[in-house]
């Protein structure tokens, strides 16, 4: 194992860590979704990078080309990108509904609203 040989893995892991941190540590729901997107692109890189062969060409068959990069990860990640944007759209729709229902998209304020509602309901009972 050499440092240069594993460089792509380390870049991927750095991006994964940033994405995970944004998802865990930030309380704004839209920011969380952007963090999820970061995490997702890091996963794309994790799949695509091992399929590359230095000196190889893109997997489009042509005369005079002997070495191609691996086409299989490309296929899988094409699917993942499209599904990713579908989840993003659904998540944003949920955020918009939460904003309408709670008047806020900060996680702490939403939880506080829930606690307040519960205690006022208990007072009435």
């Amino acid at each position: 194992m050499t440092l240069a040989g594993h460089y792509t893995y380390f870049v991927t892991i750095l991006l994964l860590m940033v994405g995970l941190f944004v998802v865990i540590a930030r309380s704004n729901l839209i920011k969380k979704l952007v963090g999820l997107g970061l995490f997702q692109t890091a996963v794309y890189l994790l799949y695509i990078a091992p399929g590359k062969l230095i000196g190889g060409a893109a997997p489009i068959v042509a005369e005079g080309v002997q070495v191609y990069s691996n086409p299989l990860p490309h296929v899988l990640i094409l699917t993942a990108i499209v599904v990713g944007v579908a989840t993003l759209a659904l998540g944003l729709a949920l955020v918009v509904r939460i904003k309408e229902a709670y008047g806020s998209i900060e996680e702490e304020e939403i939880l506080q609203r829930d606690v307040d509602d519960e205690s006022s309901a208990n007072d009435r009972a």
């Binding site: 692109t41 794309y44 695509i48 990078a49 399929g51 590359k52 062969l53 190889g56 060409a57 893109a58 997997p59 489009i60 191609y68 990069s69 990860p73 490309h74 990640i77 094409l78 990108i81 499209v82």
Partner: peptide
């Protein structure tokens, strides 16, 4: 750069 031209276009 990683030869994934279709994926790059989609991204």
């Amino acid at each position: 750069v990683l030869d994934a031209v279709d994926v790059a276009m989609t991204e």
